[in-house]
């Protein structure tokens, strides 16, 4: 299964609510994660984002799946600002994943 999400259609141009980000992660992505071959999050039209949203949505996702997330997921249409937020959230999620699974 190949998925693509238009983030502006899901949330509008400003992604700020951590609760909604976490809900989206759980109900739209995690529930089908094992059947996903690739997933693209298209940020075209997204002008701004908060740390609460990006960490609740993507930080949690990367923390759960680690390198598997990097293999399956792509971010598309990101402005310089959105790209910076995502890059930090993914790096932080990977750090936590590796910390949790150290020695396992």
């Amino acid at each position: 299964m190949n998925l693509e999400f238009q983030m502006v259609e899901e949330f509008g141009d400003f992604l700020a609510d951590g609760h909604l980000g976490n809900q989206f992660r759980s109900l739209r992505v995690e529930c089908v994660w094992n059947r996903i071959e690739s997933v693209t999050f298209d940020f075209t039209g997204v002008t701004n984002i908060t740390d609460s949203f990006v960490h609740a949505c993507f930080g949690n996702m990367v923390e759960d799946h680690g390198d598997e997330f990097l293999a399956k997921a792509k971010f598309k249409g990101c402005s310089r600002l959105v790209r910076s937020f995502l890059s930090i959230a993914v790096a932080e999620g990977l750090r936590k994943h590796r910390e949790l699974h150290r020695g396992s």
Binding site: G18, N22, D51, A56, N60
Partner: peptide, 8 residues
């Protein structure tokens, strides 16, 4: 209910 955390 969704697991994960809403805040960091």
């Amino acid at each position: 209910p969704y697991g994960g955390q809403n805040h960091r």
